[in-house]
Simulated assay, not measured.
Amino acid sequence: MTSDKIKQKAQTLFTSHGYDAASLALIANEVGIKKQSIYTHFKSKEELFLQIFTESVEHELSFVKSYLERNKSLSLHDILNMFLNEYLNRYEKNANTRFFLKTSFFPPFRLEKNVKLGSEKFVNELELIILSLFQYHSTVLNSDISPETASLAYLTMLDGLFVELLYGIPERLTKRKTESWNVYWQGISMNKGELR
């Protein structure tokens, strides 16, 4: 379908060139159609971009839910640690994740309000999903740590790793992920001696 092809090519160009530099003419050229043909499917570049971003939020939430469903039989330690690894690796392998993270952290100035609403939706739903995971595995937690505290600290660590992913270098990201994970797990876990 032409609209899907437009969105796919536009997403790639928005990610690599940014919103302003990815013109409709460039997108049309990549799709192999005339610029005017894009208007058959989308009223404007803004509408195209926001539709792609809205769908990217849903794709990322779907990834989180499916990851947890696939791994629900694992220990809390393994679910959380593997999630960090999988999400950070996903940035390199998945065009949607690259677009979503870059757009969330570097929104186009004119569309910043709309992007923040979508990012906020993602963050709110992710918080609820991770909180419910900690509530389910609450017996693993140190008695001084509530499921809410553990989930917020985990998501703060994930946010910090996303910043390093976008701004830093791979070696530093790996080191920060390993060290912050070890300190985090020691802080929340009932078994203080278990680094795993």
Rank of each mutant, 00 (worst) to 15 (best):
K192F: 06
R98F: 03
E92W: 02
N142A: 08
M190F: 04
L26F: 04
L158C: 09
E47H: 03
L166V: 05
F162V: 09
K113Q: 15
K5D: 00
K35E: 12
L165P: 03
S146V: 04
F122S: 12
P147E: 03
V31M: 05
P147G: 09
W181E: 04
M1A: 08
Y87D: 12
L74A: 13
Q36E: 14
T174Y: 06
K175A: 10
N191M: 05
A28H: 05
T2I: 01
I38W: 01
E46G: 10
M1T: 09
Q186F: 06
F122R: 06
F14W: 01
K35L: 00
A22R: 13
F105S: 12
N96M: 05
F83S: 08
F63K: 11
K5G: 00
F53T: 05
D4S: 08
M157R: 04
E92F: 10
K43L: 07
D144M: 15
K35H: 03
S73E: 13
E148V: 04
I33P: 10
D159L: 06
R176S: 07
P107E: 05
E58G: 07
T139E: 14
I38K: 01
E171C: 04
L74N: 13
F105W: 13
L161S: 03
I130C: 12
L74S: 13
K116W: 10
I38L: 14
S44V: 03
S44E: 06
E179K: 07
L131D: 12
E127Q: 15
G187F: 07
D20G: 06
Y39R: 02
I129C: 12
Y167A: 12
R98G: 09
G193D: 05
L161P: 03
T12A: 07
L131V: 08
L117N: 11
S23K: 11
T156C: 06
S56E: 07
F14V: 08
F122T: 11
Q36H: 09
K113A: 15
D4V: 00
G118F: 06
F42L: 09
S37G: 14
R196S: 09
S75L: 09
N96F: 04
K34E: 15
